[in-house]
């Protein structure tokens, strides 16, 4: 039965860090055959393998917008270029995931089952975004208690009963709500930008532009990010996850680089520049030509 997924061992009876297994593993680097039999295949996310990077989201005057690129990395290798890292759950919730993608897929199954089971009760209610966010927080916290975390940071957006929701949960179960949230590298690069640019009562277009600008800056500096992104929107009209958008990253035409661009012929430009005595005088204070 599908509810098997969310039965966790009784609190206090859990071998939190698999001491029975791990202690023996740590005792010697070459475990004896009996040990290795006991250990079997690796069953925990000890470190993430295939990873997604930042997710960012902001509230606007009628809903929430979230953005993430579509890249999955395998270490420093750009492994999968067109994977959706945002997924709908129920009628009013979208979750964006960073971190280990297989863990997110597993968690997605758990949540889909939760949504199906809730539908099967047929009591006319549906899971609200807040409820789903709370549930995820409990699952994530339980997994960290077992020393077997879902290695993700999850951004949860939604819109129900005319109220916007924006929250985040990470791999140890830290959970909070805010008007703007950025995960992963975004918490270093996008969050300061959002703090400066965010204002209440933004329009949808303003919010979309802000998210795209943040993702563009992330692409410039985060080596595990890509130029191909998707936006998710949750508002009174429902949920939308856009098609892939290619960010226009040709925004270098300012300052000196703009001058060079206007005159592609390097030698000619150099000559022009050197012959422009006014400019040289301005720069050096006397005519060196």
């Amino acid at each position: 039965m599908s509810s098997e997924h969310f039965k966790y061992p009784v609190f206090g009876q859990v071998d939190y860090f698999k001491y029975n297994n791990v202690a023996s593993q740590l005792a010697s680097h070459t475990p004896s055959p009996s040990h290795s039999q006991e250990l079997g295949a690796k069953k925990r996310t000890v470190d993430p393998i295939v990873t997604g990077t930042s997710v960012i989201a902001i509230k606007y005057n009628g809903g929430v917008v979230m953005g993430a690129d579509t890249l999955l990395s395998y270490g420093s290798l750009a492994r999968f270029n067109n994977i959706e890292r945002m997924k709908k759950f129920g009628k009013s919730t979208i979750i964006g995931a960073g971190g280990e993608y297989s863990d997110f897929q597993n968690l997605s199954q758990v949540l889909d089952d939760l949504v199906v089971d809730d539908g099967c009760t047929d009591d006319g209610t549906t899971l609200s975004t807040t409820e789903i966010w709370n549930y995820i927080a409990r699952v994530m916290y339980n997994r960290r208690n077992k020393g077997d975390p879902y290695w993700n940071s999850l951004v949860v957006i939604g819109h129900d009963n005319n109220k916007s929701f924006l929250g985040k949960v990470d791999l140890v179960g830290t959970c909070y709500q805010d008007n703007f949230i950025a995960s992963g590298y975004g918490s270093h690069i996008a969050l300061p930008l959002l703090r400066k640019a965010y204002k209440e009562d933004m329009t949808l277009d303003e919010a979309k532009t802000l998210i795209q600008d943040c993702l563009r800056v992330l692409f410039y500096r985060d080596a595990r990010s890509s130029r191909f992104i998707q936006l998710s929107i949750a508002n009174a009209d429902g949920l939308v996850i856009t098609e892939q958008i290619a960010l226009d990253t040709d925004k270098w035409d300012s300052g000196d680089s703009a001058k060079k661009k206007k005159n592609q012929d390097g030698r000619k430009k150099k000559n022009n520049y050197r012959n422009d005595s006014t400019q040289v005088i301005l720069e050096y204070g006397h005519n060196v030509v």
Binding site: V46, R144, P149
Partner: peptide, 14 residues
């Protein structure tokens, strides 16, 4: 020397 494996850190000080 075998590199000590990075272990999951369950505690964060907020």
């Amino acid at each position: 020397v075998p590199i000590s494996h990075h272990r999951f850190e369950p505690y964060v000080d907020n």
